[in-house]
Amino acid sequence: MKLIGRNLSPYSRRIAIAMTLLDVPHEREYLSVTADPDRGLEINPVGRVPVLELDDGERLIESGVILDYLMELVGPAKSLVPPHGRSRRDCLQLMAIATGVLDKAVAAIYEVRRRPAEKVHEPWRQHLLIQATGGLKALEAHKQNPWMLGDFLTLADISAGVTVSFLRVMLPELVPADAWPKLYDLCERCEALAAFQAHPLETP
């Protein structure tokens, strides 16, 4: 298998970390679709990463789809999503919130970095930041000890961990340490894991 995408992308990074935690062998193609949009469109109809290319040539797109495939691949005994009940729903909900925070934060970053200064719409950027903050509040409120769901590591932790790490670098004003003590604790726990250290966050 080949995972395509840079570790600057938290969506790609969470796949790489999960694959390492699950001992799923894979190669990497560190693609920037901004630098090489033609390659992006070649592997994904909408030109985005991550993409997981399977051994038979099938390509899976979108990190949620890829993670679902990986959990099916390793089976319920190794899955990083609880098998049923409230804990499963909580895990999936928290993953959705974490990626929602990323979606809004990335849009806010692009509003400044991808537009000429005179075309930045600050009210829209502030709206995006409010939405991202709402998601962070939900994650902070739900965080148990030591992990999001208590004693066991799940994809909710990986998703929240890569989100906070990304924001600390790319949008630090959104995540001051004193505002999110539980999420900072989670981020530090995650980044101390060998699987996280094997796929460090890239900087632009």
Rank of each mutant, 00 (worst) to 15 (best):
42 E>K: 10
5 G>T: 02
114 R>C: 04
186 L>G: 05
56 D>L: 08
187 C>V: 08
157 D>T: 08
169 V>M: 11
36 D>C: 07
68 D>T: 14
70 L>F: 00
25 P>N: 08
174 L>D: 06
155 L>T: 13
62 E>Q: 11
7 N>S: 09
130 I>V: 15
121 H>S: 10
119 K>T: 14
118 E>Y: 09
80 L>S: 02
153 L>V: 11
54 L>G: 10
194 A>R: 14
18 A>V: 07
68 D>K: 12
38 D>L: 04
55 D>E: 15
180 W>L: 04
110 Y>L: 14
127 H>P: 01
19 M>G: 05
61 I>C: 09
19 M>Y: 03
97 I>N: 01
99 T>K: 02
68 D>E: 15
38 D>Y: 00
23 D>H: 07
186 L>M: 11
187 C>P: 02
177 A>C: 06
10 P>M: 09
37 P>Y: 01
48 R>H: 05
32 S>R: 05
204 P>R: 15
119 K>V: 09
67 L>P: 01
58 E>P: 08
4 I>H: 02
1 M>R: 10
1 M>A: 12
168 R>I: 11
37 P>G: 07
134 G>S: 12
135 G>E: 06
113 R>Q: 12
167 L>Q: 08
113 R>N: 14
38 D>V: 03
150 G>I: 05
149 L>E: 04
200 P>L: 10
160 A>R: 00
106 V>L: 09
66 I>K: 09
1 M>T: 13
111 E>H: 13
139 L>P: 02
113 R>M: 11
171 L>D: 07
180 W>S: 03
139 L>G: 07
35 A>H: 08
64 G>K: 14
97 I>R: 04
163 T>K: 04
124 W>C: 05
170 M>C: 10
119 K>Y: 06
196 F>G: 08
93 Q>R: 11
122 E>Y: 14
191 E>W: 00
154 T>N: 05
95 M>K: 02
111 E>N: 13
63 S>G: 11
120 V>K: 07
27 E>M: 09
45 P>F: 03
76 P>Y: 04
17 I>F: 03
115 R>W: 09
192 A>K: 14
70 L>S: 01
35 A>D: 15
87 S>I: 04
32 S>N: 14
73 L>M: 12
191 E>S: 06
